[in-house]
Structures are given as structure tokens and as C-alpha cells.
Amino acid sequence: FACQWLNAHFEVNPDCSVSRAEMYSEYLSTCSKLARGGILTSTGFYKCLRTVFPNHTVKRVEDSSSNGQAHIHVVGVKRR
């Protein structure tokens, strides 16, 4: 389900990036709304992400508004 969900909601775009945590959060929200069992852990979800978008990269984005915490963004992917 996770791989199908990724294909339905995201697409390849080399000029874009999406927060990896936001992607997983949206996946969890969809699973909750659909009352799905067998929800992937974040590790399983990221493995699926690598399968669906094998050419993506990740980058660390520093967020000055959150006490220097960094966010991981998936580069080469955008929301549909």
C-alpha cells in the first residue's frame, strides 16, 4: 500500500524537495483515515521510498525557527 500511495501522491521533479517527516506523517494520516492495518514503520516507509524513487537524494535543511534542528528533505520529488 505504501508504494502505491507514494506513486499516487508524489512524482519525480529534479527541482523540488519535500520534507521526509511530512511525507511519513501524511502516509500515517491516510492509513488512519482508511483504518488500514499493517502500517509501515518509518524505516520501512523510507525503504519503500527508495524503491519508488530510486534516484532521489536527501538533504539536511537547517531550520532557524526550531532551535537549530535540522529536517531531512527528499530531493527530486514533489507532491502531485
Rank of each mutant, 00 (worst) to 15 (best):
F1T: 02
F1C: 11
F1K: 15
F1D: 01
F1N: 04
F1Y: 01
F1Q: 08
A2T: 13
A2P: 06
A2H: 15
A2Q: 00
C3S: 03
C3Q: 01
C3W: 01
Q4G: 12
Q4L: 06
Q4I: 14
Q4D: 08
Q4V: 06
Q4R: 12
Q4N: 11
W5F: 11
W5K: 01
W5Q: 00
N7E: 10
N7K: 08
A8R: 09
A8Q: 11
A8W: 03
A8N: 11
A8M: 05
A8Y: 10
A8G: 07
H9G: 08
H9Q: 08
H9C: 04
H9Y: 04
H9V: 04
H9W: 03
H9M: 05
F10T: 01
F10W: 09
F10M: 03
F10Q: 00
F10C: 02
F10E: 01
F10S: 00
F10V: 02
E11I: 05
E11M: 07
E11A: 06
E11C: 04
E11S: 09
E11V: 08
E11N: 02
V12I: 10
V12P: 07
V12A: 10
V12S: 14
N13R: 09
N13Q: 06
N13C: 07
N13S: 09
N13V: 14
N13T: 08
N13Y: 08
N13D: 11
N13L: 07
P14Y: 03
P14S: 14
P14D: 02
P14E: 04
P14C: 03
P14W: 07
P14V: 06
P14F: 10
P14A: 10
D15L: 04
D15I: 15
D15V: 07
C16S: 14
C16K: 10
C16F: 05
C16T: 14
C16A: 14
S17G: 04
S17R: 03
S17V: 10
V18D: 01
V18G: 02
V18N: 06
S19W: 13
S19P: 08
S19K: 03
S19H: 15
S19F: 07
R20V: 10
R20G: 12
R20H: 05
R20I: 06
A21Q: 15
A21R: 09
A21T: 09
A21D: 04
E22Y: 06
E22F: 08
E22K: 04
M23H: 01
M23Q: 00
M23S: 00
M23R: 00
M23D: 00
M23F: 12
M23L: 07
M23W: 00
Y24C: 09
S25L: 05
S25A: 14
S25M: 09
S25N: 03
S25Y: 03
E26P: 00
E26M: 07
E26N: 03
E26Y: 07
Y27D: 01
Y27T: 00
Y27A: 00
Y27N: 00
L28S: 14
L28V: 10
L28W: 10
L28D: 03
L28T: 10
L28Y: 15
L28N: 10
S29Q: 08
S29T: 06
S29P: 01
S29I: 07
T30Y: 03
T30I: 01
T30V: 07
T30D: 12
C31E: 14
S32E: 12
S32Y: 02
S32D: 12
S32G: 11
S32H: 02
K33G: 07
K33V: 10
K33M: 04
K33C: 04
K33R: 10
L34R: 14
L34Y: 12
L34W: 10
A35T: 08
A35R: 06
A35V: 06
A35C: 09
A35D: 14
A35I: 03
R36F: 06
R36T: 08
R36G: 14
R36L: 10
R36N: 07
G37H: 10
G37I: 08
G37F: 02
G37V: 07
G38S: 11
G38T: 13
G38Y: 12
G38K: 04
I39S: 13
I39H: 07
I39F: 12
I39Y: 13
I39N: 14
I39L: 11
I39E: 15
I39K: 13
I39V: 11
L40Q: 08
L40S: 07
L40T: 11
L40N: 09
T41H: 02
T41F: 04
T41C: 14
S42P: 04
S42W: 06
S42M: 12
S42G: 12
S42Y: 01
G44R: 14
G44M: 13
G44F: 04
F45C: 01
F45G: 00
F45M: 02
F45A: 00
F45I: 01
Y46C: 15
K47V: 06
K47H: 05
K47F: 09
K47I: 04
K47Y: 02
C48W: 02
C48V: 13
C48P: 01
C48R: 04
C48G: 03
C48L: 13
C48D: 01
L49H: 01
L49T: 13
L49E: 00
R50P: 12
R50F: 13
R50C: 05
R50S: 10
R50M: 09
T51Q: 10
T51M: 13
V52G: 01
V52P: 01
V52S: 08
V52A: 14
V52I: 10
F53A: 01
F53I: 00
F53C: 01
F53N: 01
F53L: 01
P54G: 05
P54C: 03
P54R: 08
P54H: 03
N55M: 13
N55Y: 05
N55T: 13
N55L: 13
N55S: 10
N55P: 03
N55F: 10
N55R: 12
H56F: 12
H56V: 10
H56D: 02
H56A: 09
T57A: 11
T57G: 13
V58G: 14
V58H: 15
V58K: 02
K59H: 07
K59P: 04
R60A: 10
R60F: 10
V61N: 08
V61K: 07
V61H: 09
V61C: 11
V61T: 07
E62R: 09
E62K: 09
E62V: 08
E62T: 10
E62H: 05
D63R: 04
S64R: 04
S65A: 03
S65G: 03
S65P: 02
S65Y: 04
S66L: 06
S66I: 15
S66R: 09
S66T: 06
N67V: 03
N67K: 14
N67I: 03
G68L: 12
G68C: 03
G68W: 07
Q69P: 08
Q69R: 11
Q69C: 07
Q69W: 05
Q69K: 06
Q69F: 05
Q69G: 14
A70M: 13
A70C: 08
A70N: 14
A70F: 02
H71V: 13
H71M: 08
H71L: 12
H71S: 11
H71W: 10
I72F: 14
I72Q: 14
I72D: 15
I72C: 07
I72M: 11
I72H: 12
I72P: 15
I72G: 07
H73R: 10
H73A: 08
H73M: 13
H73Q: 04
H73E: 02
V74N: 01
V74D: 01
V74A: 09
V74Q: 01
V74S: 02
V75M: 14
V75L: 13
V75P: 00
G76M: 05
V77C: 04
V77A: 03
V77K: 00
V77G: 00
V77M: 13
V77D: 00
